[in-house]
Amino acid sequence: MVSFFDLPRSIREEIYRHALVKARVFVRPFISMEYMLHPDRAKIYDNPNIALLCASHRIYHEAKPIYLGENIFSIVQVDMLAAARMENRRVAKNLRQIRRLELIFDNRDYKYMAESLGTEIPTVMTEVEDWADESSAKKVAMRDLGEMRDHFDIRQRKQLNHHLHQHKNDNKETPHDRLTENLKKYLWGRTLTFVRQTFRLTHLFIDLRHCTCPVGCCRLADQVLDWGWVYVWIHGLPDEVQVRGSSRSEKEVIARSLDRQSFHFKLKIDEVYDQSRAQDYRGLMQYNVLLRSVYRKLNENITAG
């Protein structure tokens, strides 16, 4: 009796590609609004048939390198992924096999993330307060969650235009400045730090068409790749970088920025990472349960919607 494995390896790999390699693979729960708002997204961005990887051990080992190595993975915000990597060796191993990555620097993603997290964080705080054992980690987590809740205050964004004009010539920090710093810290900065630490890429795709402050009044594309507290690509720069939606002058600034981020052993510590922002590994571990709670609630909301 003829079986699937009697087919030549090259034919089997083409079958794997047909099932698993798509235009984009989105790392959930956050998907960029660039694709969420696309009128033909269901037709263009269909999901890979991940069930194929569960068919047998042999198919898994043959097909997984194609799935991880040939797809373009689109990442918006990485906290959940960072927590999963630290908890699960398989996740960490799989991430090291990804070769193509897309980063979309879109201010609309911050608005969506802020509204989602701003809604869920109070519930998570209540659960932690009620169920977590009293400890220093709990106190730190509650403090940091409270700060995030305040940062993602929806009312603050609704009042932004009024304050922006009111403080136009004022040297004090405005709501506009705070929201831009939030965008850097919680969305783009964290993402870039994680990407530089984790991946050994052949291709990096960068979309800068909506790379502005949360209000849209400040173009940020000429500085975006300098953010994050890790300054260098630990596993080496991508072999190829494709930038979309930037001017010639912005491309030149980005190219110079990438040139500075090549890792070599003669670099000083402060040239590798920002010591004031770097967090200890054990400190990151204490937030894993909280991140899983947010992730679960977001997925429940997506499913219910």
Rank of each mutant, 00 (worst) to 15 (best):
L160V: 01
I59F: 05
K138V: 03
Y45N: 03
N107P: 01
H38C: 13
G69V: 00
R248I: 13
S276R: 10
G236K: 10
G305W: 02
I44E: 12
I31V: 15
D79F: 11
N299I: 01
N49R: 11
C213Y: 01
E14N: 15
E271Q: 15
I104M: 08
P175D: 02
H235D: 04
G146H: 03
L53F: 01
C213E: 06
D40M: 09
V272F: 00
E173K: 03
R89Q: 11
E120Y: 09
R12Q: 14
E120K: 04
S74W: 00
H264S: 07
V224P: 02
R196D: 03
T174I: 00
S56D: 05
E14V: 08
E127I: 06
A51D: 13
D153S: 14
K139I: 03
P122N: 13
E62R: 06
E70L: 04
C213M: 06
S247D: 03
K168L: 10
V224M: 12
A92V: 09
E134L: 05
K184A: 11
T191R: 12
N47M: 13
A137C: 10
L225H: 07
F5I: 09
K111S: 13
I11W: 01
R196M: 03
D222A: 12
M80K: 07
L117K: 03
P238A: 06
T174R: 07
V232L: 03
V215G: 09
Q97C: 08
I72T: 10
I72Q: 08
Y281K: 15
Y287R: 10
S247G: 10
R244F: 10
Q242N: 15
L101T: 05
H61I: 01
H167D: 04
W227K: 04
K297R: 15
N171K: 11
I98E: 00
P39N: 04
M148L: 13
E129H: 07
D259K: 14
H38N: 12
S262Y: 01
I59R: 07
E173S: 06
F194I: 07
L284N: 09
R256I: 00
E129G: 12
Y45A: 09
M285A: 13
A255D: 11
R296E: 11
R12D: 04
R209Q: 07
E252L: 14
T193M: 12
T123Q: 15
N107K: 15
N49F: 09
R296Q: 11
S257P: 00
Q286F: 09
N88V: 05
G236H: 04
S56K: 05
V76N: 08
N94C: 15
N88E: 12
R12Y: 05
Q286S: 12
P39Q: 02
H163F: 14
R178M: 07
V128C: 14
Y110C: 13
A278F: 13
V289P: 08
S116M: 15
P48Y: 04
